[in-house]
């Protein structure tokens, strides 16, 4: 948690820059890189909580979905005015609202759940997804079960070209920005007192408590940060998809994918989700093209195999393989 973090972050930064340049420079890579950006961001955001605490929130996708709804509803509301505000203002508001809604939900759920240990935490959060979905469908807010679509609002308020630019170009960069902010947050967290406390609680929660770590507060802080970023990621996804329907928005597959990518790369490492995300993104792209609709069928056994055979992921494996050498110090 000292010099190694710096070095690995520089590498991460370089890899990300290359991805970004490729995306800007080679338009043909748009489709695949847009998938990659989203998945790397998703698993890095997920990793910010799960990786740093080793607690898993199975209802995680609820925060992304809430961000999609919050962002979408904000855009719809602002564009319903007779003279719509500038695009930048609309998007900024969408992100802000998405983040704030996710933050509030995370505070409410987290305030109760982070007091619980292990399996009890999973119980408290596994229903989050179902709960929110049924609340939206039950009360009929945000279009209820018929969903929320903002495509027409964008086209009518601005024009078709702007719409295409926003959804197919800008959205990717916004998602990339969320990813960059997440990396920055992880860096700031692990460099701080908070990071030392979390590292200790990840190893032995009771001993950490006796060592002076306020475990409940620390878990809550990273849970809320992670959820807020997930909400913002949702806003980015909403701008990209311009529509949200409860069955897809609350699909459990995002949670599974976030777990798979983090575990594949190496849970609790900063570089892991990027490595995992790159591999997974490419695989998913190939699989969606050749076997549409079967990703989960392939993914679930893969995840089971990972749990049993190499729970420490690629980065964990590499760190063991190259123990004591320079490569180990680069991978954190």
């Amino acid at each position: 948690m000292d010099i190694r973090t710096h070095r690995s972050l520089i590498i991460l930064f370089l890899v990300s820059l290359i991805l970004l340049f490729v995306r800007v420079g080679i338009p043909e890579t748009r489709q695949i890189l847009s998938i990659l950006f989203f998945y790397i961001a998703l698993s890095e955001v997920f990793n910010l909580f799960t990786g740093l605490t080793l607690y898993v929130c199975f209802g995680y996708v609820a925060f992304v979905a809430l961000g999609m709804y919050g962002g979408g509803a904000t855009i719809k509301y602002l564009l319903s005015a007779s003279s719509p505000p500038p695009l930048a203002v609309v998007l900024a508001c969408a992100f802000a609202v998405a983040g704030i809604l996710a933050l509030i939900l995370a505070l409410a759920v987290g305030w109760i759940s982070v007091r619980l240990k292990g399996a009890y935490f999973a119980i408290a959060t596994i229903g989050l997804n179902e709960g929110l979905k049924n609340l939206i469908e039950g009360t009929g807010i945000w279009g209820g079960s018929s969903g929320l679509v903002i495509a027409n609002d964008l086209i009518q308020s601005y024009n078709y070209d702007t719409f295409i630019f926003v959804t197919s170009e800008l959205a990717d960069y916004l998602i990339f920005t969320v990813y960059a902010v997440t990396i920055l947050c992880i860096y700031l967290v692990i460099k701080s007192r908070l990071g030392y406390g979390l590292a200790a609680l990840r190893e032995d929660e009771e001993a950490a408590n006796v060592m002076g770590v306020n475990v409940v507060r620390y878990k809550l802080i990273v849970f809320v940060i992670s959820a807020t970023l997930a909400g913002m990621l949702g806003a980015g996804k909403m701008i990209k998809d311009v529509a949200i329907y409860p069955p897809q928005a609350f699909a459990v597959s995002y949670t599974v994918e976030a777990i798979v990518i983090s575990m594949l790369g190496g849970l609790g490492t900063v570089t892991g989700p990027v490595i995992g995300g790159l591999i997974y993104g490419v695989l998913k792209y190939v699989l969606t093209v050749s076997f549409p609709g079967l990703q989960l069928l392939a993914l679930a056994p893969a995840l089971m195999a990972m749990c049993v055979m190499f729970p420490y992921g690629i980065v964990g494996w590499l760190r063991r393989r190259f123990k004591g050498s320079k490569i180990e110090s680069l991978l954190i």
Partner: peptide, 20 residues
């Protein structure tokens, strides 16, 4: 002894020192 197994010796002691 319940050291934080996955952390270095120094970091273990830093955790002990930091929270006081």
């Amino acid at each position: 002894p319940r050291p934080f197994a996955g952390m270095t010796v120094l970091d273990n002691v830093v955790v002990g020192a930091l929270f006081s």
